[in-house]
Design a binder for these strands. Sequence first.
DNA 1: TAAATTAGCTTACAGTTGTACGCTCAAATG
DNA 2: CATTTGAGCGTACAACTGTAAGCTAATTTA
Lengths: 204, 204
Amino acid sequence: MGIRAQQKEKTRRALVDAAFNQLSAERSFSSLSLREVAREANIAPTSFYRHFKDMNELGLTMVDEGGLTLRQMMRKGRQRAEAGGSVIRISVDTFMEVLDSNPNVFRILLHERSGTSAAFRAAVAREIEHFISELAHYTEATAGRTPMLARAQAEALVTLVFNAGASALDMKRADRKVLADQLVMQLRMVAKGAEALQHKVEHR
Amino acid sequence: MGIRAQQKEKTRRALVDAAFNQLSAERSFSSLSLREVAREANIAPTSFYRHFKDMNELGLTMVDEGGLTLRQMMRKGRQRAEAGGSVIRISVDTFMEVLDSNPNVFRILLHERSGTSAAFRAAVAREIEHFISELAHYTEATAGRTPMLARAQAEALVTLVFNAGASALDMKRADRKVLADQLVMQLRMVAKGAEALQHKVEHR
DNA sequence: TAAATTAGCTTACAGTTGTACGCTCAAATG
DNA sequence: CATTTGAGCGTACAACTGTAAGCTAATTTA
């Protein structure tokens, strides 16, 4: 890669990082202005356009990076689960760890999931869909669930996990532990309940 | 009430209504400007201050009205449930009906629940807490749940319901029906699962 | 009835926003 | 080496924001 392309990539990175760094509990992506991001990245406002068409494009890039984090998390969870132990517990712990070390990645995913931009919502939904279908496939295979039941169960699990994640973002470590324990309990409820419903279908 | 107070109340109402009317899938409360709201309500921007200290105060008023809607919904659900039938089914149907006729009330609740203003988040959480504790109390009483289990179950139910509500907001009637059916299934999972966990605790 | 109150208005201002335009000068190209 | 390319910059502007100040006219109070 030439010197020029290298420098350009660096500046682009600076913009993305600047945007991520400005996110917080009090500051959502949609409240960031192009000028603020450019300021934080130490470039002139108008130079922003050399890298992104507008703030929307920047945001979608960030959501994509969030998807990457999500997939890395899945891989990590699967690896740990292979070693044995409660799949639910392992998954929750992994989730909380990744959440803890990438808070702002989750902030944009969790916030824009129900945000005001259709494009954003679609992008986040697409990333989360990986999760859901992987989970649904998993329970179909290992627990012999009906596709419909598997889907409903997977969506419920993901809803509960992401919702807990949103709450956990603004919590201290101690409260987070309580939350994680409750989440494990809720996920077990869904798993047990899905099993019961499955049996009901079978015995008829 | 004097003529003056009456007129003032009318204008205040116009402001609140103007704000509610500007909400949509593409427009969140936090993206509304004071001037836009004043314009829609047909008053001068500066007259806004005769009624609210700032946009924040308007927003909190709207959340309060959302709480009112929620409580009316609970009452309606309880009444219908008394007549017999599946409590879960009745609750979901009631929820969907109320959602359908007050979309913007739910928009502000669902959006600001995970918004960027701590005051808003707290206000919404307070309103939803009614729901959760009422539900927890209900399952403790009728199904003899452990307080801890009852709480976890109630939070799971509410999470699933509100999450489905957020999705339902932008759906056509047909898709909404599918969603409602899946939601019922998920709620049954949680209920069945909580029961199973309860028995596990008891048999030891 | 005279005085006080106040909802709503107009005017005004400083700050911020997105973005159009044209320049520079270092890197890439041929 | 001569030419082209393009990342980053400064200037500029129109649109919008929140809100301060002071006026008006109708209602309320005493």
